[in-house]
């Protein structure tokens, strides 16, 4: 595309050393959050010209049905585990789940879990939408979540990670506070939005994401448990210098399969067995950062900014 840019300039280069020290609530050095993606994939969605929803003609039996497995079978398994370790999920929600499977929404509301927007369906991409169309989709998703949960979603993860140049601007203009779409850092960072409002990125790790681990990187289940622990060890160690964020993004059709729960459970047992770990939600991390560290971060970022040659 001719109008495409080298960089969307969403943030400044901000080196991971000598930053103002972050201390999380209770003196914690690591903020840990789990983000279950609860998604609805349509069996026969309209064809987006930029991305095929299914590799084969509808009905894509295996692709569609394994995702349905996540909602029918997997959700309860993961919820039970998170209950066991007293972790409140931050749900990356296909808003249409509110319409299709309100029982799941109800159970998560009862647990005071957070819901953030992951679009309407995971088979409706941002690609090709006009700015007004994208705004309509974002507004629809946010309003649906507010209507069914009583809370306007503070966070955003674009449906199927499909973005436009204005995705974050639009979400901020609709009332959003943080994004999970950027993978550039292990700490929250300010994000530049065209309306100038305070808006941050909360680390949501693609590397820890079960679907990326299992489907893209094809990692063995027990090895997945090991890399989660290694990821934690290093972030926990560095968090003494300045508080870090660790996220495990999950999908009920991956993590909750019978051969994979053991690794996840062992990892949660390990992480929650440490002191100095703040079990948080995405919004709690974003708000705490904005309240306590946003201004000092901006000052530090500005002091390290250099002219692009």
């Amino acid at each position: 595309m001719d109008t495409a840019h080298e960089d969307l300039n969403l943030y400044e280069y901000w080196p991971y050393h000598q930053r103002p020290k972050i201390v999380w609530p209770g003196g914690a050095r690591l903020a840990f959050w789990v983000a279950p993606n609860i998604e609805f994939y349509e069996i026969d969605p309209p064809m987006n010209p930029f991305r095929k929803p299914w590799p084969r003609p509808s009905p894509a039996v295996s692709g569609y049905s394994i995702r349905d497995y996540g909602n029918r079978v997997g959700h309860m398994r993961q919820m039970k585990l998170l209950d066991k370790y007293k972790i409140r999920g931050s749900i990356s929600l296909s808003a249409a789940i509110c319409d299709h499977h309100p029982e799941i929404i109800q159970m998560c509301c009862e647990r005071d879990w957070e819901f953030f927007s992951h679009g309407v369906y995971n088979t409706r991409y941002t690609y090709g939408l006009s700015e007004e169309q994208e705004r309509e989709m974002i507004r629809d998703a946010c309003n649906t979540i507010e209507e069914h949960t009583g809370k306007f979603p503070a966070g955003y993860l674009a449906p199927a990670l499909s973005h436009s140049e204005h995705t974050l601007d639009l979400f901020s203009e609709e009332g959003g506070l943080y994004t999970c779409d950027l993978f550039h850092d292990d700490q929250p960072t300010p994000v530049r939005i065209r309306n100038g409002k305070k808006f941050v990125s909360v680390p949501y790790s693609l590397e820890m994401n079960d679907t990326i681990a299992y489907v893209v990187n094809k990692i063995e289940p027990r090895q997945y448990g090991k890399i989660i622990q290694a990821n934690f060890d290093r972030l926990y160690q560095e968090g003494e210098e300045s508080g870090t964020v660790m996220c495990i993004p999950t999908h009920n059709y991956q993590i909750s399969c019978p051969h994979r729960l053991r690794a996840f459970e062992e990892a949660l047992e390990y992480i929650t067995g440490h002191s100095g770990v703040w079990l948080a939600t995405g919004k709690e991390i974003a708000e705490y950062f904005i309240e306590n560290y946003y201004e000092s971060s901006i000052v530090d970022i500005d002091s390290k900014a250099r002219e692009v040659i």
Binding site: N48, P49, V120, Y121, G128, L129, S130
Partner: peptide, 10 residues
Amino acid sequence: MSLNKKFLEY
């Protein structure tokens, strides 16, 4: 750039 309106119908 925009998509057919059916892309936002459900």
